[in-house]
Nucleic acid binder design. Structure first.
Lengths: 139, 139
DNA sequence: CGGTATCCTCCCTGATACTG
DNA sequence: CAGTATCAGGGAGGATACCG
């Protein structure tokens, strides 16, 4: 992406003849922003984990979604899956080089979100309060 | 967020007594990653736009979703909404300081996605091909 | 231990029509 | 021009049960 050309031009480039759903950027982003994707990527950014470890680490996730999210991340090339020849079987998940390179920008955004949660939360409260005041207090 | 403490510790901090759904980072991220949010933020990062301009700029979006997405972005404090005293009425949308500060990290990620779409797409094709081969070609 | 398969539910999104 | 209201569909996500 070249910041020197306008967004409108970039958008046309993104679209081509295709509907906007085919936009490459969106295709990629969708894989990163599932409900659990960001969280798991952060975890795997620390060190490789086994399936059961991840499950204990993120208690809220269902087994189904853990499997599926890891599978999607593997499909997109961010995560590798290594079956360890032990008994009972163990499966290790970790970041690939592609995943590690993506985690940089992603983490920057996570850091921003963490640093600015208070501001966003305040904005929400303000907005909701104004809205309520406008609805009931205007007459 | 402090990168020196482990993810597991950070996760506990995120959760507190709350379920993971209340994680502040997720609260913020959810507002950024809607289907149209990223796109509109990129557009508004260039210059302020009026409602109708945005609609023409992003032809795929329905009027309903444009209204709703802008409203959500305004609620989170990323976007301001200014009603211009003209007839017929015009409404201008633009980035706030908070929105502009968020757009930096977000754009870095968009740039990453744009630069690495080919790699992700290749990984997907490889994965799907391997899967199909494993399913039908193993016997 | 690490999955699959099935069913179900909610919410996001879109199409359409109407309003100030 | 810039919304709001209402209805309908689909897909993401979750609960449960079973398998190697």
């Amino acid at each position: 992406m070249d910041a020197r050309i306008s967004f409108a031009d970039r958008l046309k480039t993104m679209q081509g003849d295709q509907p906007l759903d085919a936009c490459p950027v969106r295709q990629v982003m969708q894989g990163i922003f599932g409900k659990w994707s960001t969280l798991l990527l952060q975890a795997l950014g620390e060190r490789p984990y086994r399936f059961g470890e991840l499950r204990r680490l993120v208690p809220d996730i269902s087994q189904r979604m853990l499997t599926q999210t890891l599978r999607d991340l593997e499909r997109d090339g961010y995560v590798y899956r290594k079956v360890l020849p032990s008994k009972p079987p163990r499966v290790e998940y970790g970041l690939t080089a592609l995943g590690a390179s993506m985690l940089g920008p992603l983490t920057d955004l996570v850091v921003w979100a963490s640093d600015n949660f208070a501001a966003v939360d305040a904005a929400r409260r303000r907005f909701d309060a104004d809205e309520a005041a406008g609805a009931s207090g205007s007459g």
